[in-house]
Design a protein around this nucleic acid. Structure first.
Length: 282
DNA sequence: CTGTGGTCCTGTATGC
DNA sequence: TGCATACAGGACCACA
């Protein structure tokens, strides 16, 4: 459930479940989600058994569960990852990949249909896993330097949406919230980043933060059962989307039908009237 | 360094 | 009904 509001929704759900809990047993049902653990699935299970979780943390779309000894379990939900909590005897959701039995009798399940995401052990990663260090601070990070971020974005020559989706620049924004932020600020997805005035970049980042904040208050965006919180419930933000998924529907600002184009092997939705790109010079 | 495109997976919707 | 194709919210890696 992949973008920042959905990952944060999961983090909050996990916080109330795993913090302070000891792992009694681990079962890896499919090797792929732990592929980044070089020592293999059996070692992954053995090395975590008996250890205790601290409070889950997040940067961008990365999530990690610190262990009390300073290591961490790093998680990325990829396109379809979920964490679910239930009684061990409860039926497993389809595509359940990894199980953690907790010392309070509950079971944490990592479920992932497409398996683009995964889990790994990050030695010494409790504070900030090495695997996350290359990711830029997200828009909710109190230590984010917005001026530096604006300047960095404006040094890039590619289309602004590609830059927004580059997690090393700023993290947490995915395809939905990129389209929504661009719609709110009236910027075309392929507008060259270095051709945007500083105040427009700043407005775009403000819009991205606002739209993700609004999404978070309703539990994130979900179109179907693939994106749910730890209790299996969907968010409601899809009812508030203005661009994403709205091909052919009228723009809420001007009534022009929303257009869908393919960009970076994915869909971009935008209003052709509110979001026009200046002709690139050649 | 920046920029681009292919690839990793399973499942669902749509079209012929 | 079968079968093929397109598409899905992400990130990594090779290569120019």
């Amino acid at each position: 459930m992949p973008e920042l509001p959905e990952v944060e929704t999961v983090r909050r759900g996990l916080a109330s479940v795993v913090t302070g809990r000891r792992v009694d047993a681990v079962s890896v049902l499919h090797p792929r989600p732990v592929r980044r653990h070089a020592a293999g699935p059996e070692d992954f299970a053995a090395t975590l058994t008996g250890r205790r979780f601290g409070e889950p943390r997040r940067r961008g779309k990365y999530l990690w569960l610190p262990l009390e000894d300073g290591d961490a379990v790093l998680a990325h939900l990829g396109m379809s990852g979920q964490f679910r909590v239930d009684a061990p005897a409860a039926e497993l959701p389809r595509n359940t990949r990894v199980l953690f039995n907790l010392d309070d009798g509950r079971q944490l399940r990592f479920v992932d249909q497409r398996m683009f995401g995964g889990l790994s052990v990050s030695p010494g990663g409790a504070e900030l896993p090495d695997e996350v260090a290359h990711i830029g601070r997200d828009l909710f990070d109190p230590d984010l330097d917005v001026d530096a971020l604006v300047a960095r974005i404006r040094r890039r020559g590619s289309g602004i949406k590609r830059v927004l989706l580059d997690q090393t620049v700023t993290s947490g924004i995915g395809n939905i919230y990129a389209d929504e932020a661009l719609w709110h600020s009236g910027v075309h997805y392929d507008h060259p980043a270095d051709g945007l005035a500083p105040r427009r970049v700043r407005a775009l980042l403000d819009a991205a933060r606002d739209v993700m904040s609004d999404a978070l208050t309703v539990g994130g965006t979900s179109f179907d059962a693939l994106y749910v919180n730890v209790n299996g419930e969907s968010g409601y933000f899809d009812r508030t989307l203005n661009a994403y998924g709205r091909e052919g529907l009228p723009c809420a600002r001007c009534g022009t039908p929303i257009v869908r184009e393919h960009f970076m092997n994915r869909s971009s939705f935008f209003c052709p009237r509110c979001q026009t790109v200046p002709r690139r010079e050649s």
